[in-house]
Design a protein around this nucleic acid. Structure first.
Lengths: 203, 203
DNA sequence: GCTGATACCGACCGGTCAGTCGGTCGGTAT
DNA sequence: ATACCGACCGACTGACCGGTCGGTATCAGC
């Protein structure tokens, strides 16, 4: 029993890993089930023995990964400290994820429009739980404690996530350098805005 | 000559309009050339008489539209006033665009990954000229005039655009209401940040 | 009213791809 | 040894879809 379970689980894990790599490199439509099967060293029949459809394979690969990210980000939420410190921790954790792991979150935005119905909802919910809701929990505390101005927590969280997403990418790497520069920029902009600080009076 | 031009131009415009509607409602792959042809009341042969390929039809529809938006946003750039006033004008113009026109900009992000090569570049360039570069011009002035803190203008522009894009959508409409509420939120957040203002000293 | 050009037609082709299905094989329980 | 079962195989199918092509309709200029 364990032997069979392990064997199936191993194969499924191999398929998942290969699928992740391929879906990152090419668009959903461009990645064929043949490609996945060949790269995972199973046949299409074998692949369809474990997954009912291409869509389902894609979604469960994504959902599994997002679940792991949720656990990571929850540590920042659970942390003691100011709102800013906790957001910093979460953002740093995110920025320091190995490239492939980090890029996977972008796939949600890239591919969300090709699905619909129940499977799409599964993906959306997994994403929301993994990132925006974690940020929202911290932001909500920040507002409650007077660290952030009163505002809609969800909207603020989305804004924060959007600022973080901007900071990924090669151009920003050239401008701001590695994690710390990017992190500082996001936090400065989110908390303090882009306006020049008045040098003199409060005016 | 004018008669022929007009006839062809009319048909092409009809195809473009129909394509825009369809591509907004469904993903690129889901919209078939048959659907476009039928909805535009031509046959596939007629469609391919005017456009060399589905991809080319899509891209030129988008590029044409983005070109019109560029002209609109250029008015805000050309305007007299502070950086904040000019960004407000540009953002207001954007937010007050009729729904379909505004959504079209989101298609760039949605579909950019399915193209590659020259046509993709055409689309990317048209988008950049239409929106981020306009914002960047204003932001650059703001930095030069000491209204914005010294920073990379392009990065700031992207951040601003990202904040604007957040503010579209039904949830934000419920929270902030129509254009003015959204506009104020974006400007407040971008210029002043989300931190609570100190009530007392400068501390 | 003839001629050429352009707009338009619609059946058809070539290729792709998700998904199927009858069958093999290795391991496990009895 | 036998019976069984889940893992896996791979040729095949059916549908779809972008693009083609030989042909017809419409209209301008002569």
């Amino acid at each position: 029993m364990t032997g069979q379970d392990t064997r199936a689980a191993t194969t499924m894990a191999r398929i998942n890993a290969v699928a992740r790599r391929l879906f990152l490199a090419k668009s959903y439509a461009e990645v064929t089930t043949d490609m996945i099967a060949r790269a995972a060293e199973v046949t299409k029949g074998g692949l369809y023995h474990h997954f009912p459809s291409k869509e389902s394979l894609y979604i469960s690969m994504m959902v599994g990964d997002l679940e792991r990210k949720r656990e990571l980000f929850e540590q920042a939420v659970a942390m003691e400290g100011t709102c800013r410190e906790r957001l910093a921790r979460l953002t740093r954790d995110f920025l320091e994820l190995p490239g492939e792991e980090r890029e996977l979150i972008r796939l949600v935005r890239r591919d969300i429009n090709i699905f619909s119905g129940e499977e799409r909802d599964r993906l959306v919910r997994a994403y929301q739980r993994a990132l925006p809701e974690q940020v929202e929990a911290i932001v909500r505390d920040g507002i409650r404690d007077g660290e952030l101005a009163a505002a809609d927590a969800r909207l603020l969280s989305w804004s924060f996530v959007a600022l973080v997403e901007i900071v990924i990418g090669e151009y920003v790497h050239q401008v701001l350098g590695d994690t710390t520069g990017r992190l500082d920029h996001v936090l400065e902009l989110f908390f303090g805005g882009a306006a020049a600080r008045q040098v003199g009076a409060i005016a």
